[in-house]
Write a protein that binds this DNA or RNA. Structure first.
Lengths: 330, 330
DNA sequence: TTGTAAGCGTTATCAG
DNA sequence: CTGATAACGCTTACAA
């Protein structure tokens, strides 16, 4: 069943059928009704590929993420897709993992599918080394690119960033104000977001005249736990753990429990993202709500405006809010 | 840049370029090299829409989920997408929410985009009322449909199911063997999976000669918590909570703590899915690992074989494994 | 081994 | 208001 069949059955030309289909041009109410009826009867829907070809778009957006199973990224997809759908776009999701080669390759695959725009979730796609970001800059020469919580200064690359630096500063301020004197910054990957958080952490430390140290903890939940247990046992001097995400923070929390260190009395712990994880543990985590829903909406707006060649700032930073719970002192 | 440009530049016909592009038909090594060079130089890649039109496929799979932010579903996407990509398929993800109308509508949208197959995550898409599943049966008349952890007996619908009934039975057996006499089955939505779990729960109860009751707890983390607190306070008689997923179980755990009921001594609690949540709480949850990675792989295989018109069972059930941790007695 | 040409199902221009 | 028809960029008989 194609447009010719419909045109024959309704006794009009395919041009008219097309007009009805797209609400374009002038069609008398009478013929419109006639055509619609035939369309209905056959529940015909136009071939998407042919349409894509004629319009040179299929209204799809590529969403690139390193790991769709990650709470943070999964939330983003969860917020983004319905927003896109409302604008008649479909979301092609691609999970790259953390390997740079895959990231570039997967992006290329999306381009080859002629997506209308790209959304990259997280700062893992951006490297310190500008050379390595070149492929993103190039992609942006073809279609709008949106970075959610990542930053790259280039034409047609729209960045929406949560103010991670301020967030980390506030969290660190909190634990310091509540008496900590030897805080540790815990991170996993050294992404842009991590760097901003580190900066905020160090700022707060400097401001309070304490020396914060940092510790990288890698791998899965288990491994993080082990690394932290090592940290805690190697020296009893630390009294606060400022983690880059809730998962690390929870692992930290549990390591404290194992090591017989009470939270928050002997050790304050803070997370990031205010995810369901921060509610699952005991004591519940003081964390930072980075308002992913807002971020996704802003990113989607940027993309939509860019697609209509309207103006939008290349960089938007917004702030989240501190969620104080029971892993920090009162 | 299109196939004509390439053909001109390399002094061959478009047919030959196409052959090179697709490794089809006979092309002399010499011309192949020549063409490839031109392709390379222009880093040309064929127009996906035109290809789609000529082949009547763009190698895309539609993934339908109710909520991509849900841990379970996010994990599925995380496992599925890379598998599909390896087979040269792209994944169009659509999040329907829990409203039936949307579910059907979103599925229709995917069909209109000419996806080659559909994967539905979770049992929320299947209704008790066969009428309401009609749209899935119809979809399956056009393309293969795979249900991950959902069941529908219809042509071309491939179901991969974790044996939730056995799982629930084992979890319930465990708490009963460890001394519980008044267990409660906690669920959220009344999906197929829930029903199978309930069956397992009731089975185990019957076998042990105890009467299990069930309780529906709705909404988000907070609400679940409140509902459970009510349950616990209304009557002190219960001594085990068998929850349909880890989130409910964690909420239950915390409600116990709030109510001053010790876990597992006074109250045993079990979860489902062995997600990161089950590790985050204290005590860590006894839960059931439903091997999502395996399920996704099986589902993908079903789809791939169906696409090649090869045979695959319409229903596959596999079992997971019990993960005993600290929310049940020893 | 290569080329010609038909066909895929739309949209959009231009004439009526 | 409606209809012919070119164009979109590819694949694939069929011919050479």
């Amino acid at each position: 069943m194609n447009i010719y069949d419909i045109s024959k059955q309704s006794g009009v030309s395919i041009a008219t059928v097309s007009r009805v289909l797209n609400n374009s041009g002038y069609v008398s109410e009478k013929t419109r009704a006639k055509v619609l009826k035939v369309i209905e009867q056959n529940n015909y829907s136009p071939n998407a590929f042919a349409r894509g070809m004629a319009n040179s778009t299929m209204s799809t957006i590529g969403i690139l993420c390193s790991d769709a199973g990650d709470l943070y990224q999964a939330q983003c997809i969860h917020f983004l897709e319905p927003l896109l759908k409302k604008k008649e776009f479909a979301a092609i999701v691609s999970c790259t993992g953390y390997d740079e080669k895959n990231q570039e390759n997967d992006l290329q695959l999306l381009l080859e599918r002629n997506v209308d725009a790209l959304i990259l979730i997280g700062s893992h796609f951006i490297s310190e080394n500008p050379k390595k970001n070149e492929y993103i800059v190039k992609a942006a020469q073809r279609i709008p690119v949106c970075l959610l919580n990542g930053f790259l200064d280039a034409e047609n690359v729209f960045c929406v960033l949560h103010d991670d630096e301020e967030a980390a500063r506030k969290l660190t301020d909190l634990v310091l104000e509540r008496g900590s004197r030897a805080p540790v910054f815990l991170f996993r990957h050294d992404s842009g977001s991590t760097q901003r958080k580190r900066q905020g952490f160090l700022d707060a430390c400097a401001r309070h005249g304490v020396t914060g140290i940092e510790k990288r903890v890698g791998g899965d939940f288990e491994e993080i736990g082990r690394a932290l247990l090592d940290l805690l046992q190697e020296e009893g001097a630390y009294d606060a753990l400022v983690a880059c995400d809730d998962e690390i923070a929870v692992a930290a929390l549990k390591s404290c429990q194992k090591a017989g260190i009470s939270v928050p009395d002997e050790m304050q712990v803070t997370g990031f993202n205010a995810s369901v994880l921060s509610r699952a543990c005991s004591p519940e985590l003081t964390s930072y709500d980075n308002r992913l829903a807002f971020m996704c909406e802003a990113g989607m707006n940027a993309i939509m405006l860019a697609l209509h060649h309207e103006d939008y700032p290349l960089k938007t930073t917004y702030n989240g809010k501190l969620v104080e719970r029971d892993s920090t002192r009162k």
